[in-house]
Design a protein around this nucleic acid. Structure first.
Length: 420
RNA sequence: GCUAGGGUGGCGGAGCGGUAACGCGCUGGUCUCGAAAACCAGUGGGCUUAAAGCCCGUGUGGGUUCGAAUCCCACCCCUAGCGCCA
């Protein structure tokens, strides 16, 4: 959430941000509602003051009936003004809560994802002496992923892992958690459901409610990413500067409705439920951009160790997520498609989420508590990493070689086609 | 799920229809070579901020009343016991 002080005193900053993001937003209305709201609020408070004075006089008053009538009159005006004030605040907040973050000045201008900037390319795509198969072909032939049965159980967009596929999934999760743990991230196993207030804190509500699964009749939502849980660990808390930065990592399943999105990605790449290991940092404002670079490196480390070629892309202003001020995507190489596919997205949200979730810190030479900066990144999406691994490690006979670092987690070196 | 008790500032804890005591902690000031102690002030949110000031705030939302932390209703959460249970 953007600071109302900025909206009031330096609206041009927000206007420029909206232009850069290439989105249509009724910002002028927001300013106008806020202005009217404050004017009416002043009026209302004046009336309430008058009423308080009269009501205070009541016990000693001789003519109680007359006084009662006077109060009743003011009360009438108060009631109607209250309605106006509430309605104006509601209109203002409706827009305020949907206003995206301001892009960092280092973010390149661009209209959409086609104008993202490749920052670095790591690893050589392997040359295959045969036509590399897609991960879903390999998986079905190997009998490690069952799309049909997944659909039978939960409907379209769900799949089921079997045998060595299930073990490989689990191995990837443990490998990633262990790797991050060694870099100082504290491992968390959070609830998979989160309250609406938590989803508001990260910026997923109110704007993206249609992307999330909700428990019927309750204010509880299935995590679309562990980011919601990890960021909200410290909601409504004031931290100490000396304890920052905080590093958290968690494995959770993630649930997304993907409403209105057509399935342009086959197999396990775009589904309603997937596993992910997430990284979250809570930092001081002065260190958050250094921490973002390190966060990206920590996520890259996974692909390096697995030996999967990838590239790092900086999102342009037009492709930036709602809460983010700056985002790097990490994209793994998919030989069958001859292109890179996103397996991680690492963002610095600065104080945008901290303001919504009310996370502050004291110390560090500050007189007043200030908002922390929050960062999040996938480290990595398991399903997509699983798919990239199959594609990059496929052999001519259709078997999959397991990367060295994973073998102590899988307990096997290769996934072979069933003899049947 | 049932029954009972309970939700008041960072914490403890009063008030039980007349507009939120007090203590601790924390911050600043005085004092000091420095610190402690002591003393003074501040320590929920908002509006206005030149200052003074004003409004809201006792788990949440309604209701009664001139006036609600206090009375009534609904919901949420916590604790204990019972039930159920991986």
């Amino acid at each position: 959430m953007i600071d109302l002080e900025i909206i009031r005193k330096k609206p041009e900053i927000v206007e420029e941000a909206l232009k850069k993001r290439n989105i249509d937003f009724p910002f002028k209305d927001l300013i106008e509602y806020d202005k009217q709201y404050r004017a009416k609020l002043r009026e209302l408070e004046k009336l309430r003051h008058e009423k308080n004075l009269l009501t205070l006089r009541f016990p000693k008053e001789e003519n109680k009936e007359k006084l009662r009538r006077e109060i009743e009159e003011i009360d009438f005006k108060i009631k109607s003004l209250e309605k106006e004030v509430d309605s104006l605040k509601e209109k203002r907040d409706y827009l305020l809560h949907r206003l995206p973050n301001i892009p960092h000045h280092s973010v390149p201008y661009g209209r959409d994802s086609s104008e993202n900037v490749v920052v670095r390319v790591v690893g050589e795509p392997k040359k295959f002496s045969f036509r590399p198969k897609a991960h879903y072909e390999l998986a079905e032939e190997l009998g490690i992923v069952d799309f049909e049965r997944g659909t039978k159980l939960a409907g379209a967009g769900f799949y089921m892992l079997k045998g060595k596929g299930a073990i490989l999934e689990r191995a990837l999760i443990n490998f990633m958690l262990d790797t991050h743990k060694s870099k100082g991230y504290k491992e968390i196993f959070p609830p998979i459901l989160i309250l609406g207030s938590g989803a508001f804190g990260t910026g997923h509500l109110p704007k993206f409610s249609e992307d999330m699964y909700k428990i019927e009749g309750e204010d509880l939502w299935l995590l679309p990413t562990a980011e919601l849980a990890l960021v909200n660990i410290h909601a409504n808390e004031t931290l100490n500067y000396k304890d920052l930065p905080l590093y958290y990592t968690a494995y959770t399943p993630c649930f997304r409705k993907e409403a209105g999105r057509h399935i342009d990605l086959k197999g396990v790449l775009r589904v309603h439920q997937f596993n992910k290991v997430e990284l979250v940092k809570i930092t001081s404002p002065e260190s958050s951009y250094d921490e973002l670079e390190k966060l990206v490196n920590d996520a890259e480390e996974i692909l390096k160790k697995l030996g999967i070629p990838y590239r790092v892309v900086m999102l342009c202003t037009g492709d930036l997520g709602f809460a983010s001020a700056k985002t790097y995507d990490i994209e793994a190489w998919f030989p069958s498609q001859n292109k890179y596919v996103e397996v991680s997205s690492c963002s610095n949200c600065e104080e945008f989420q901290a303001r919504r979730a009310n996370i502050k810190f004291v110390g560090g030479g500050r007189k007043e508590p200030e908002y922390v900066h929050t960062l999040n990144g996938s480290g990595l999406a398991i399903g997509r990493t699983f798919a990239a691994l199959l594609e990059n490690y496929q052999q001519e006979d259709g078997s999959i070689l397991i990367p060295e670092v994973l073998r102590k987690y899988t307990g096997f070196d290769v996934i072979e086609r069933p003899s049947s």
